[in-house]
């Protein structure tokens, strides 16, 4: 709804991806504006996670163009590490570094990449712990945390690099139900602060509440996209209707 006014942050054009015979993404094109929150929904295997992982080149497209923040990452000469510094990523399985404490997890990238010195990085890390409400866990080993705590630390770790774009790959799918709320709360606050966010999720309530735009993936294609109101209350695509009737009654 706001993409016409704001500048384009992510530009995807005619992207294809196959694993052998399996054509997971077919001619996907999508623009995402600065400050926009886009939620991607769809059945598993529909290609939405692959699409997300392509935006920071954890997967490489077979062809097509992907421009993030003005950098064409489908171009071989682009320094992908520099682009990635600006794109935060949160994984379904957290992927916190097991060999470090909570604080060290958050400090690692800014210090290693020379963005902040140790003192500044620690200060920043403690501030971030405050925003995810886990100050008291600063010095514990990450293996002692619950799933919900781990995911909030993972968000803090991504934010430590002060990215312009945040990618979320099913951030609550591996969590116990009672943990989901805390993580969604952190994400909601982040959205309100104006972060550009691209989220793959099954949390339809969250999508309705936070998304500027909802994109429905099915069989490697974007079948429909629109405001939460359009997608959830007046779905046009037949597969979307079918999908919604399944997840809403589940």
């Amino acid at each position: 709804m706001s993409e016409t006014k704001n500048k384009v942050k992510v530009h995807v054009e005619k992207v294809n991806k196959s694993y052998g015979e399996n054509h997971v993404l077919r001619d996907i094109s999508l623009d995402i504006a600065e400050n926009e929150v886009v939620v991607m929904i769809g059945p598993s295997g529909s290609g939405k996670s692959t699409f997300l992982r392509m935006l920071n080149q954890l997967e490489t497209p077979d062809n097509g163009t992907i421009v993030v923040d003005g950098f064409d990452i489908s171009e071989k000469t682009t320094d992908i590490n520099k682009v990635r510094e600006n794109i935060g990523m949160v994984f379904q399985n957290f992927n916190l570094f097991n060999n470090y404490t909570v604080l060290e997890n958050i400090m690692l990238a800014p210090v290693e990449l020379g963005k902040l010195d140790k003192v500044a990085a620690e200060k920043k890390a403690r501030e971030l712990l405050e925003t995810v409400d886990l100050v008291d866990k600063a010095d514990v080993s990450v293996n002692s945390l619950s799933g919900g705590q781990k995911q909030r630390i993972a968000i803090a770790r991504a934010l430590a690099m002060e990215p312009d774009v945040m990618l979320f790959d099913e951030p609550t799918s591996a969590l116990d139900p009672e943990m989901v709320g805390d993580v969604l709360e952190v994400m909601k606050n982040l959205a309100e602060s104006g972060m550009t966010m691209i989220i793959v999720t099954h949390e339809m309530g969250f999508a309705k509440q936070v998304a500027d735009r909802v994109v429905f993936f099915e069989s490697g294609k974007i079948q429909e996209s629109g405001t939460p109101d359009q997608v959830f209350n007046a779905p046009k695509n037949e597969r979307l209707q079918e999908f919604l009737s399944k997840v809403m009654h589940a």
Binding site: L58, N81, K82, E85, F91, L96, N98, L113, A154, R157
Partner: peptide, 16 residues
Amino acid sequence: QGQMEAARSLGLPYGS
């Protein structure tokens, strides 16, 4: 494998 992906997605080069 997720450990490597997490590190790379933060912008760390392969060596780091």
